[in-house]
Design a protein around this nucleic acid. Sequence first.
DNA 1: ATTAGGG
DNA 2: CCCTAAT
Length: 553
Amino acid sequence: MERKRIFSVYFSRPLILRVFNFLCTLPSRLCLACLPPDNSSAYVNVDSHCSEQHNKLPSIDEKLQSQIPLQETVPSGAKSSSDDHVTQSGRVGECLKPLDGPLEGGSSTSTGCISSKPDFSKLKGEICLDNLSIKELHEVFKATFGRDTTVKDKLWLKRRIAMGLTNSCDVSATTFVIKDNKLVKKDNEDGFNNVNLGAGKEHLAVAVEYNEDLLNNLSSQIDEHQTTSEVRLGNNVVENNFASEDLAADQRAAKRVRKPTKRYIEELSEAESKEYSGRSIASTKSIGGPSKAHARPARNVSLEGRTVITRLYSLGGFGIQVPCVYRIRRSRPRKNVTALLKFHPSGMGMTATFIKKGFDVHGSQMDNGSMNKVLEAKSTPEQAPEQFEAELKKETTPTDMGQNMGLKYVDPSGDTSDDNVVTVPTAKGGIRRKHHRAWTLSEVMKLVEGVSKYGAGRWSEIKRLAFASYSYRTSVDLKDKWRNLLKASFAQTPTDKGANSRKHPSMPIPASILLRVRELAEMQAQASLPNLSTGKLSACGGRSVNETRPGYL
DNA sequence: ATTAGGG
DNA sequence: CCCTAAT
């Protein structure tokens, strides 16, 4: 039989994949089958193997853990003839099970790496996808990407597989890609002579276990590198247009993977931030059951002169470098809070006056009539927010200061309760700041007013127009508060028992406010449903609105 | 950047 | 209140 020379290489699985892929990119440049037979150990009887076991791609589930140095000797002199074989490259390697040999034969029998080489005779002939059947291509595809494909197009499959494998190099910890380029370059320069795959030093930790999510991510990355791969795959580029549609479809399917939330990333990185060199906890938590992916110690990879700290996941034989993201403590900028805190040490009085001044301005902006109305209904000066101080003065003792001080103590909801920042322990041990600022009655009223004016939902408007002076209270806050108000109003409207009696400091919202809230809610509910004919319903709603609004507007 | 909702 | 997704 004709003997074909192949690499006398100790491959680990991922490396094989890469080599395999690399070879796929070569056909136009050289034909391995034509390499002169100068190393017997490197020969395989192609034909015999073809006949033997052709079809079984190894199951990728096998765990392969050997770290095998790649030792390769590629004799020189093949280059000249290579071109001639380009055209027949597909046929030369009649059979190719690139993934076959070393895995079973090698791993099972290998007691020592070099001494007992894997039985490479099982690695048949030239590595090329050309002769694989669709079914086989599907298997390779699945082995490569961890998912099935329905694409029947051989060209597409081949290209996709090759591309995926090629790109897997991009994200791996090896420098193989670069070598790939280098190889190409060498090939162009001085032929194939000095090609040294893996520089003879590739050590790859192999963890051939598959994880759906990570694989999908891998696929996504691969997709993103498409252009790169196209360039690299020179010979196959021609086919791109042909398969572009299917490819796109497939990509879309592959990308439908929910990305981890930011918090997840933060927490994950936080856990490892101390020692990025330590082994990562990888995905053991995210994936039910035994961990499917092994994370290898991260390492600093020098990349184009820059050193990048990465975590590396060894996955299905592919190394994936994940840049470390360090937790960023985010907290809402609180301007006024800090200002308040500055006053705090001096004593309550200072704080009170400070706040009073601040709110007096706003108080003046408000509609006095409505405020008085509310105050009357409430008849509870203690709970009156500072904004109403102007009005309060009329009814209360001239010593506003003392009144204010007392007010502060009595009403915990007042802004003087400056415990705006509360540290809340999190489950993970981290503590996160939670600033709490109780809503004052005036704020609530402003909110209600704003809603009545601009409608619920236009929080930014309300904030800008009605809450201009409150730097805190974001639109989200307004929205939340309104939601709470609605809830409260509908919850306990029937009996306002708790509302007026202020025995519960936690429930300071007066009934009048709740009433208004409910009215506004109804009004807006109807406004949002204008489709109904102008029957009694709309008339009823409109009437109530008109009835209530004048007093406040 | 805003809004809606879940927590 | 916080966080997120969706717009």
